[in-house]
Structures are given as structure tokens and as C-alpha cells.
Simulated assay, not measured.
Amino acid sequence: MLNITDLKIAIRGKEILRGVDLAVEPGTVHGLAGESGSGKTMTGLAVLGLLPHGARTTGRIALGERDLLALTPKELNKVRGGEVAMVFQDPATSLHPMLTIGKQLTEHMRHHLGLGKAEAKARAVELLGKVRIPGAEEAFGRYPHQFSGGMRQRIAIAIALACSPKVLIADEPTTALDVTVQAGILRLLRGLCDELGLAIVLVTHDLGVMSAVADQVSVMKDGLVVESGPRAQVLTNPGHAYTRALLDSLPESRTTQEGS
């Protein structure tokens, strides 16, 4: 579904990614782990063409047979939000505070799918129900500040799913949430992956999060993927010293859970 080959990015002469390789299959959650500055978020942004002005990019980002790096801005704009969508870390900043939830959902669909007002509303209410927003019909007319952080993140996920993307990039989607709410969001992502056949790239610094939902795990350090493989293999028998260091930094209870 998504195949990244030898992706290199330089910004103002500084090399950020140094040859990233990543393959994400349909119907799987692929965890992309690493500490701050490792390049994991930049990899996700590159897929959507959301890099800073002046970034120099080489390599290949293939969605099916198409190289996203070779698309024109107009062509890429159709892919972004339509075939590839992103959920950001903080829903308080990714949702517009002055627009209702319904407006933010339906504008997205009317732009990409060409739906009429009634069709878009019906799909929006359906999506709010799918991400388990209580009273979806009523929620449609409410504003972001009227929801908790966990509910806002669910709404952000609904917006990302509005145009039935093939690939969903979730960038630290649980970092701003408490542990109980985190678990609910991770279960939601796992369920959506299984139900819709999505390819999900889960970007996080927390290998404990990976242990809950990922099928495959790739570990990044200094702009490179240093280890990649099935979750159980990477988390219980890591082959790279950096992966072992990340695991050793987890609280003992989290490490025990990963080994179980």
C-alpha cells in the first residue's frame, strides 16, 4: 500500500532523513518509533507533502504504483486527505475552534467527494458514531471546546476518515491524553484498521504504545530506520542496541507487558 524507498530530506543544508525505507501493508498497523529528532514525524509529513519550504527531497514514496514525490501540487492535493490522511498529536490545535464539528466534517467531504449537503451530513453523523462519539446527531452541531480531549481526538480521527483514505498516519495521537483515554484511542485505531482494511502508520516515541496495537514495528534513529520487523520480534528480541536502550527506558511494568 505504502512503500518508502531511500527517502532523504535536507532542510537548509541539514540532513534530516538519510535514506529511510518503510513498507506498510493494507490492514496493518505499522509502528514508527524513536526519540524526538529521530525523523519519524518528518517521514509522515513527507508522505503528505507537508514539508517546510525549501526542503530538498530525494527517493521514492509509492502509494500503490504512483510516486507521490513525482506528483504536481494539484495532483498531490487530491491525494492528501482523500487517499492519505493524518491525525495530529494535539486535537486542540488540529480542530478549528470557531467551526462546528459538523462543518469541519462536511466541508472535507464536499471538497474531496463532491457530496451534497444532506449526503455529507448523513455520512458525518455515521462517522461520529463509528468513532464512538455519544449522541452523534447532537454532537454534529457542537464546537470542539464542548468535548473532552479524548473525544476531540476521536473527532479528529473521524475527519481523517471522512474520505475513506487508504493510508492513515497517526502522529503521536495519544501523547496529550491520560492513560485510560489513551487505551481507548488505541483500541479505536486497531478496530478501524481491522474493519476498514486501513494501512496505519502509528508514529510514537513510546514502545509501550506499540506493544498494544502494532503488527510491525520500525525503529528510527538519526534519520534512519535501524530496525524493522514483527512486533513480537522487535520488542522481545531486539537486534539493535538503540532498540534495546528504548526498551530498557520503559517502566518495568510496561516492559513486562510487552514480554507477555
Rank of each mutant, 00 (worst) to 15 (best):
L76F: 02
E35M: 04
G102K: 12
K40E: 01
G54A: 03
G59C: 10
A85Y: 11
A85N: 12
M98K: 05
A55D: 04
H30V: 13
P52H: 13
A70F: 10
G31L: 09
V29P: 08
G64A: 12
T58S: 15
T72P: 01
G44D: 01
M109A: 08
V47Y: 00
L71R: 08
F88A: 05
I101F: 05
V84N: 02
E107G: 04
T58Q: 15
F88C: 04
G81H: 05
G54Y: 07
K103Y: 11
A85S: 15
R56C: 00
R80W: 06
G34M: 10
L48H: 11
T41C: 04
P52K: 11
L48W: 03
E25V: 05
T106S: 07
L32P: 12
T93Y: 02
I61F: 03
T100A: 09
E65W: 00
F88P: 07
G37E: 06
G54N: 03
T28M: 13
E83P: 01
T58I: 06
M109F: 06
R80F: 01
P73V: 12
V29Y: 06
E75W: 10
H108I: 06
R56N: 06
R80S: 01
K40T: 14
K78A: 13
H30G: 07
L76E: 00
G64R: 13
G102I: 11
E75R: 13
A70M: 07
L50W: 12
L50H: 11
G34S: 11
L95C: 09
L32W: 11
T28Q: 15
V87M: 06
A46R: 10
K78W: 14
L51Y: 11
A46D: 08
T100I: 04
V47W: 00
L95E: 09
L76S: 03
D67K: 10
T106N: 03
M109Y: 02
M42P: 08
E35A: 13
E107W: 02
Q104R: 06
R66S: 14
E25A: 15
G59W: 08
G44I: 05
L95N: 07
D90V: 06
A85Q: 11
T58A: 15
G59A: 07
G34C: 10
M86R: 02
N77T: 12
E83S: 13
L69K: 10
L45W: 04
Q104M: 13
L69M: 12
M42N: 09
L63A: 10
I61E: 01
T93P: 02
H96L: 12
M86L: 13
V84W: 02
G54H: 10
G102H: 12
G27P: 09
A55H: 05
V29F: 00
R60G: 02
E25Q: 15
A23H: 13
L63W: 02
G102L: 12
H108C: 14
L71M: 15
P26L: 03
L68D: 04
M98D: 00
T58Y: 03
L71V: 01
G44W: 02
